[in-house]
Amino acid sequence: MNQARNTASDASWQAGSAEPAIRIENVTKTFGKTYAVDDVSLDIYPGEFFSLLGPSGCGKTTLLRMLAGFETPSSGRILIDGKDVTQVAPYERPINMMFQSYALFPHMTVADNIAFGLKQEGMPRSERDKRVQEMMELVQIVPFAERKPHQLSGGQRQRVALARALAKHPRILLLDEPLGALDKKLREKTQFELVNIQERLGITFIIVTHDQEEAMTMSSRIALMRDGRVEQVDPPRRLYEFPISRYAANFIGSVNLFEGVVIEQQGDEVLLQCDEAGAVLRVRDSRKMASGMPLCLAVRPEKIRLLAPGEEGPNQLTGVIREIAYLGDVSIYHLELPGGKRVQFTQSNVQALAEQPLTWDQTVTISWRPDSCGALSE
């Protein structure tokens, strides 16, 4: 996973000193008896690159559409710069939106597409032409100014849509799955370009995505959504390293979950009887845990270390390698424990392939530190 971005907006929400650019207060949206968004409250600060992340049907797009003004909350309110805009029309909000389909006018050139909103606002021609040129330079599409959308690649159309959305200098830009139509390499390249553009302009970006890697790469903070509610809001690194629930742990990256029962607490370490692992496992956690309490231990595959023959370590488990996936920079191993549970761990491929020591049906011992895993009660 990529590191969380270090942006100026981070200090704002951490210190709690800045006023939020957007405040969502107890917003609910129902369609008949179905709750698309259920009592969501969020503060999003100026200059943030904020992601609404979750699977299809979790409510993230409905929430984005309410921010844009295309949907009206059933209850609750939305404030922008302290002003209640819940009932304000989309065109009267300091917001622009970039749609998943890009929604370019097929009969217009690239330059005319970008200029359309400015022309509707009555901006003088000379000023409009200058703004269009600035936007084309920003997203690097100057050579395509006179082309029509059908003459562009998917990546080029995406840039035109972005330039058009930015041309009116909105305070806030909403992006609905903007990279979904791009291939993997172009999507990865565009992710970093979007971050660079956002940081240069200082505009608050709010993106909807179901792609965890996309959210982790670009965001200053992520709101992980589940069934219309917000499960967890945190910077990418904290969301990955310290998920608050099984759902969050499973959604972000790969994870091994061990169900067990608390035996005792020794200082800031909790001892967990885990029958499926056939061992007592240790996890660092300062919260008070009662004996007999059900608990889940979560450990990421890259936190697990392979022990040398005769070496011992905490949370030590022995099993047989059943599956190997070679991904170039890393290999993924599936270890089967005596009780049948599978544990996934990774190894960096720093040696030549011919020298790789691990193979199918090999018995190995793994270990991880108590402070490299987390305890989940939900």
Score class of each variant (00 low, 15 high):
105 F>V: 06
121 E>Q: 15
270 V>H: 01
136 M>C: 12
364 V>W: 02
339 G>S: 14
319 G>D: 07
70 F>S: 03
269 E>K: 03
105 F>M: 04
115 A>L: 04
286 S>H: 11
88 V>E: 09
21 A>F: 00
101 S>C: 07
58 C>P: 04
72 T>N: 08
346 T>I: 11
175 L>M: 15
249 A>I: 09
213 E>H: 03
111 A>Q: 13
359 T>H: 14
212 Q>C: 11
304 I>P: 01
246 R>W: 00
343 V>D: 12
274 C>F: 05
162 L>W: 05
309 P>Q: 03
7 T>L: 15
246 R>Y: 00
202 G>I: 08
33 K>A: 15
39 D>L: 03
132 V>E: 04
178 P>M: 07
312 E>P: 00
285 D>V: 06
218 M>E: 02
152 L>G: 04
85 V>T: 11
237 R>T: 14
124 P>N: 10
317 L>I: 11
362 Q>C: 08
150 H>P: 05
200 R>F: 04
168 K>W: 01
139 V>H: 00
37 V>G: 03
375 A>G: 12
74 S>V: 10
28 T>K: 09
52 L>M: 12
321 I>V: 15
342 R>F: 10
240 Y>K: 10
290 A>S: 15
100 Q>F: 07
191 Q>C: 09
45 Y>A: 03
144 F>K: 10
98 M>R: 03
354 A>I: 11
40 V>M: 06
213 E>T: 13
307 L>M: 09
359 T>V: 10
66 M>A: 09
336 E>N: 01
190 T>A: 09
277 A>L: 11
74 S>F: 11
107 H>P: 14
239 L>C: 07
66 M>L: 13
